[in-house]
């Protein structure tokens, strides 16, 4: 596996020019995620109305994989229902374990660009940090309904 597939343009673009790396006004949820092995930290912020993700952002500090993955994730889940977002989180986590189907990876759109990280066990935690944090928030939201 060469660099061209691993640190690809999708990843480096989202790392250098994140779309959603800022604070959100009046978020419904704020949750910190930490990956002690790299020292990655993100604070994920969400607005959820009537079961739909209306706003999302993150702030944090860490490696390119953790930061780009969180940015791509937010791009993907904005406007989705909580159930859709949860199912995407499951697909993403399966992809990183190397267990997702072609269709699943396709449904993850840009997040599919992180597929190759499944070959780098030491970096898996970076890629899933945002998604794990998201899952934790959404499971709380589901519990509420």
């Amino acid at each position: 596996m060469g660099n061209s597939t691993f640190y690809n343009e999708v990843l480096t673009d989202h790392n250098m020019h994140p779309l959603h790396k800022h604070d959100l006004e009046n978020p419904d949820y704020v949750l910190e995620g930490v990956n002690p092995s790299c020292g990655d930290e993100i604070s994920l912020q969400l607005k959820v109305e009537d079961g739909v993700i209306k706003g999302g952002s993150f702030v944090g500090d860490g490696c390119a994989i953790s930061q780009a993955s969180a940015d791509i994730m937010i791009d993907l889940i904005l406007g989705k229902t909580v159930e859709e977002a949860l199912s995407m989180a499951d697909s993403f986590l399966r992809m990183i374990k190397g267990e997702a189907t072609e269709e699943e990876i396709e449904s993850l759109e840009e997040a599919g660009a992180l597929e190759d990280i499944s070959h780098m066990p030491a970096r898996v935690k970076c890629a899933v940090l945002g998604w794990h944090t998201l899952k934790e928030i959404l499971e709380k939201e589901c519990g509420k309904q």
Binding site: N3, F6, Y7, G39, C63, A64, I65, M120, R123
Partner: peptide
């Protein structure tokens, strides 16, 4: 601009093993 773990991962694909972290 580049996080140490990204440096070490790139070096790994170039067949160079270095340490990154605290």
């Amino acid at each position: 601009d580049v996080h140490p773990h990204d440096v070490a991962s790139i070096l790994s694909t170039e067949k160079v093993a270095i340490r990154a972290g605290h």
